[in-house]
Amino acid sequence: MKHYPIPRLAAKLLLPVIILFALYVQFHGDYGPGGGFQAGVIFAAGIILYGLVYGLDSARQLCPPWLLQLGISLGVMIYAGVGVVALLLGGNFLDYNVLDPHDPVHGQHLGILLVELGVGITVAAVMITIFFAFAGRRG
């Protein structure tokens, strides 16, 4: 791909837009369609595009494998951690009402936001990891 300037430029222009859109989908999922799964996949698609056009090595520099492996487990940890925090605050596992003692609805908001964040991190990291595993197999 090194000798094709148009895809390289297009990818460069598209990448920030894709990442921004992923973040929008992630945090706007409460109000419109979207959420952690979609945001994670879109984010991963942006990185995959970068990897396809600029080569695997530069994509690996952008998202080093240790970061991805951290992300895979961190997302699950965030999700389960929210449940445990709810448990410690005196509620049931994953019962977000207790996250905010004054306003259960706000607690629900917070809980859903955190949980979706966990899902998004895990999905994005998993998709990028799988892509790297497939693409790196050839070398």
Partner: peptide, 10 residues
Amino acid sequence: ILTAIVVGIA
């Protein structure tokens, strides 16, 4: 189905 799609890709 939302969860099923993501499990499907996995």
